[in-house]
Design a binder for these strands. Sequence first.
DNA 1: GCGCCATGTTCTACATTGTAGAATACACGG
DNA 2: CCGTGTATTCTACAATGTAGAACATGGCGC
Lengths: 108, 108
Amino acid sequence: MSDDAPLGTFEEQVLLAILRTGADAFGMSVRREIEEVTGRAVAIGAVYATLDRLEAKRLVRSFRSSGDGRSRRMFAVTRAGARALAASRAMRDRLWRGINLLELGGEH
Amino acid sequence: MSDDAPLGTFEEQVLLAILRTGADAFGMSVRREIEEVTGRAVAIGAVYATLDRLEAKRLVRSFRSSGDGRSRRMFAVTRAGARALAASRAMRDRLWRGINLLELGGEH
DNA sequence: GCGCCATGTTCTACATTGTAGAATACACGG
DNA sequence: CCGTGTATTCTACAATGTAGAACATGGCGC
């Protein structure tokens, strides 16, 4: 379990959405954020399933919000999560280096 | 099948590896390329399975090489494939915009 | 020519990730 | 208290990712 496995596409989106919403990230807000930025509809089940898996891998951690009203399950990205994001980005940058998509010549 | 589904992590890597190796892309060379750039071992079955799926979605096309020696199954990225790559990149850039990983404060 | 080796591809089976939506919980306004 | 909007959990399944064995084929030494 020496988790060097690259992040999945959706895992990365969820991690980034948590960071984008700052200290107030919970299931529904993560969903909203991803939908706004990507323009795609996101099933709420997909979000929680991914959040659970990320927590199992210790890339996020969750806790109950204390606030006056109804308590929510809040999420934060861990250091390991931030590291995984950085690694995932670095690897992709390396793969993209030197690629020029304007070479889509005759390929139908 | 209005395929607006984002590319998977490995699908993107395979597509980029084909572009990187230019006109000479075939299964083994794609594997080699990915291993060199990412530093991770790649199972050959994973490459072909992904290549087959990308072909089914018309993001790559394949053909038998003619050459003197043994014939190979060559691959090329289609226009739709290049478009998918560009879209995938644009979406990720939008998600990353404004993120600063140096904010990994006290989160254990 | 034959057998062996290196290279390349296909196949089978399974693990992980991604998706969908129903079921459930719960505070609040009326 | 009952409906409503928000939030979470659960169940089931589809798509993607992984692993490695099996199979094919051409080059080469002998």
